[in-house]
Structure formats: C-alpha cells, structure tokens
C-alpha cells in the first residue's frame, strides 16, 4: 500500500536525521486535502495519499522565506508533474539538491469532486517519477508512455478569428480580480520582487481592469516560456475559473515546435530562449 510506504519512509527519514522536515499531503476535514508539514516522526500518521492530492508541493521549495525558516534538509513528496517543476527550479539554481530528499510517488491520476479525471492527468506522461532523479520511489513502476500531446483545444482557439478570440479571453480578463492566486501558487514564480508589483518603472497597470489584466496574464505567460511544465495549479486555484492552462499550453506548443524543447525533462537545461544555435529558425526575419 502506497500510503503505508509513504509513512514508513517519512518516519525513517525523520528518525535517522536525514531530514528535519517532511512536506506531504494531509487531511484538513472531509474531502479537503492540504499540504502538511511534519517534524515529529510520530506525526507521520497525518500523511495521506489519494486522488485528491492536488497541491504542487514544490511551491514551498522556491519560497525563500520558507526555506530560510526550515534550513535543515527537507523530504518532499512529489508526483510526476511536481517533479517537472523541481527540475526546472534546479536548472535555475533555485533549489539546493543536496538539501532535499525527493520522495517520488506513482500517481494514477487526480480526480475532481465529480469523480472525473483531471484534464492535465489525462495527458500525463510522468505517472512514474524518474528513478534516477528521486531519492526514494514509492508505488509500482509504470512504463513511460510517449504520448503525442493533445493540443486540440488550443487549435480550436487558434482557429477562431481575432474578434471572437478577443471576446473569448476578454470574457475572463474582465472578471479577473488580480488576486494573484495563479502567480502565488506557481512554483516558478519565485521572483523576489515580481515585475507586476514594481512601480518605478511601472510595467503593468496594477488595477484589475481589462487592459491591466490582459497584460498581466500575457506577460506572466511569456515569463514562463520554456519553463512552465503545465502542473495546472494556476487554473485550479483561480477563483473565477479562467482557463489559464490554455494560455501556458499555447506557448508550450510553440516552444516544442520551434525549439523541439519540453521543460522539466532535464535539470541541466534552461529555457531555450537564452540559448543560441546557428540553425535556430529565422523565418521571422526578412
């Protein structure tokens, strides 16, 4: 049983001193899975594992304050999608690999409250986290399926003519509250001072107007170019239900086509935007 092994692993790591903190999933009430932070080996009973373990716990590793307060080694439970975020953070020198113990868990897919498998899980290609990357793997080995990513919903929007497309997105941009939940939950949005918060110069209008919101989402997507791994958290936490994954996946599609690159696969490779190769496509230059 997976949860048993998780608890045993956690307990062992804490007892033998390999880690001083375990970050995993716990219950905060019926049907409410939350992140849980365990320091005492006896508390491992709080850990759970089910198809509602939505949170991308990697978020905590790029939170500077959190790391400062917990400066011992950290054991962290990750799903395959979380692993991708971690690899990107490693490529950008944001996480000290020596100070974490990666506990990868086989995840067969998350479900929403209606019992439907999440869209991002349907397209998952890392059911089984990388053996040579994780310190511990829990769960049965699943052969990697090399799936062709399905971008049909992106194509659908691309096929809309511009006025319709504008209407589609403005419908959401009008309702965006600028709560910044999407930015705050994203593990890759770790800037000490987010560009959206800067005043001098002011890059983006801070108010929750359509104009400001358009720019906010587009700039954020651009800042994630070649980095976003489609963990889907942003869309999950959005209070107004904006299909944020579509924006990021559009860019993921373009990056794959132009640079043949997928983020989160190689912890040595950063976004292709900073790399120059002689045969890079130049069809946008006359």
């Amino acid at each position: 049983m997976i949860i048993k092994k998780i608890k045993t692993t956690a307990k062992d790591l804490l007892t033998d001193g390999s880690v001083s903190l375990i970050i995993g999933y716990g219950i905060n009430g019926p049907g409410d899975v939350t992140p849980v932070f365990i320091k005492d080996p006896d508390d491992v009973e709080k850990l759970v594992w089910n198809d509602q373990c939505y949170y991308n716990l990697i978020r905590y590793l790029s939170d500077r304050d959190f790391i400062e307060q917990n400066n011992g080694s950290i054991g962290i439970i990750i799903k395959g999608c979380d692993q991708k975020s971690l690899k990107v953070l490693l490529s950008e020198s944001q996480v000290n690999r020596d100070k974490i113990k990666v506990i990868g868990v086989t995840c067969k897919g998350l479900m929403d409250s209606d019992g439907n498998v999440l869209a991002k899980c349907e397209a998952c290609d890392v059911v089984y986290p990388d053996k040579d990357f994780c310190d511990v793997i829990i769960g049965e080995e699943v052969k990697k399926k090399e799936k062709e990513k399905d971008f049909s919903d992106i194509d659908e929007i691309d096929s809309m003519d511009l006025p319709d497309r504008k209407k589609f997105w403005d419908n959401f941009f009008e309702r965006c509250l600028r709560c910044y939940a999407c930015r705050n939950i994203c593990p890759l949005c770790y800037c000490k001072e987010c560009i959206m918060d800067q005043h001098n110069p002011q890059w983006v209008l801070p108010s929750a107007s359509v104009v400001g919101n358009r720019l906010f989402h587009i700039v954020r997507a651009y800042h994630l170019t070649g980095r976003c791994v489609d963990c889907g958290e942003c869309e999950r936490v959005c209070p107004i239900g904006m299909p944020l994954r579509k924006i990021n996946r559009k860019i993921i599609k373009v990056v794959k086509e132009r640079f043949d690159f997928e983020s989160g696969k190689d912890q040595e490779q950063k976004s292709p935007l900073t790399r120059y190769r002689e045969n890079d496509s130049e069809d946008f230059i006359i």
Binding site: E92, S93, Q94, Y190, C191, K192, E193, K270, S271, T274
Partner: peptide, 20 residues
Amino acid sequence: VRCTGCGFCVDVCAYNAIEI
C-alpha cells in the same frame, strides 16, 4: 534585492561579463 540568481543573464552574455 531583486536578483534571484536564476542565471538567464549569464546565458545571454556574449562577453562572459556576468557571473553568478
């Protein structure tokens, strides 16, 4: 204060003038 040490600037510098 703002720099996160991500190293993108190092990658794009043609003159090796920037380091982490």
